[in-house]
């Protein structure tokens, strides 16, 4: 039997909202340590990796490892029947379940839904836990804003790191521009900008993916960008007390 109860069901809704335009069908993996998900977009440019640890749930039980194939679109239809303040419980009964049950609980109502599961043949990529040569922490809303602004000018956005900070730049048909974000150690943790740069990087990415990734900014006030030259970038949103959502994006490489 598998059971996972989110005290804050709105959090689960935010996670689904954050990934819904990146991936269509996903395998949700559950085991004794928690729930995870790894899926790639159809063009193999972006990868979503979610980890939710059992300790972060109000209630968690998983006797046997389980793979649940879900359509994100259908999952969202069911989640629309829940309130943002509901507690949400996911549950399966059988060893090889064909449905995933949802209980939405508020002060005055309890709703039950069953979502049909699918069998998905999805390859899991072994993404190594590597050291990155530049790691930047900055406010997630600031990152969202910069991507939106620069995305107006060109479809590719450049990111350059140095000991002084991080610079975003674009060069398009209409002209070019850059935004430098200064390092600060303000007392407000959500406004802090930190750069750990062992080796500077200069990378280029398709901005439309960033604009999709930025839907995850509702999960955390800070975003962590981990980069190495000519390697996929990782954008991480820490989900407080529960785990993290990591979004990987392949760069455009200078030929």
């Amino acid at each position: 039997m598998f059971e996972a109860k989110f005290e804050d069901g709105g959090l689960f809704k935010k996670i689904v909202e954050a990934i819904k335009e990146l991936v269509k069908n996903v395998n949700l993996e559950a085991n004794g340590t928690g729930i995870s998900l790894q899926a790639m977009d159809t063009s193999h440019v972006a990868l979503v990796a979610l980890q939710l640890n059992e300790k972060g749930f109000k209630k968690y039980r998983c006797e046997k490892s389980l793979t649940m194939g879900l359509s994100i679109e259908n999952l969202q239809k069911i989640l629309k029947c829940s309130g943002n303040d509901d507690q949400i419980t996911l549950r399966t009964q059988d060893e090889e379940p064909t449905t995933l049950s949802f209980t939405f609980e508020s002060k005055n109502r309890i709703s039950e839904f069953q979502l049909n599961l699918m069998s998905l043949d999805q390859e899991q990529l072994g993404v190594p836990d590597t050291e990155y040569s530049s790691v930047v922490r900055m406010p997630s809303n600031e990152f969202t804003k910069i991507c939106r602004e620069l995305g107006n000018i060109n479809e590719a956005i450049g990111i350059e790191t140095s000991k002084e900070g991080i610079k975003f730049y674009v060069k398009g048909d209409i002209g070019e521009g850059q935004v430098s974000v200064k390092i600060n150690d303000t007392e407000k943790p959500e406004e802090r900008v930190e750069c750990e740069v062992d080796e500077p990087v200069n990378l280029s990415f398709a901005v439309r993916y960033f604009n999709l990734f930025n839907k995850a900014s509702a999960l955390s006030s800070q975003v962590i960008l981990s980069m190495s030259q000519d390697q996929p970038l990782v954008i991480e949103y820490i989900i407080e007390e529960m785990g993290s959502l990591k979004l990987y994006l392949a760069p455009k490489i200078n030929d």
Partner: peptide, 14 residues
Amino acid sequence: QFYQLNLKEFYKNL
């Protein structure tokens, strides 16, 4: 000239 790196190939070839 830029080309778009493919994530699947990148991680497979590691």
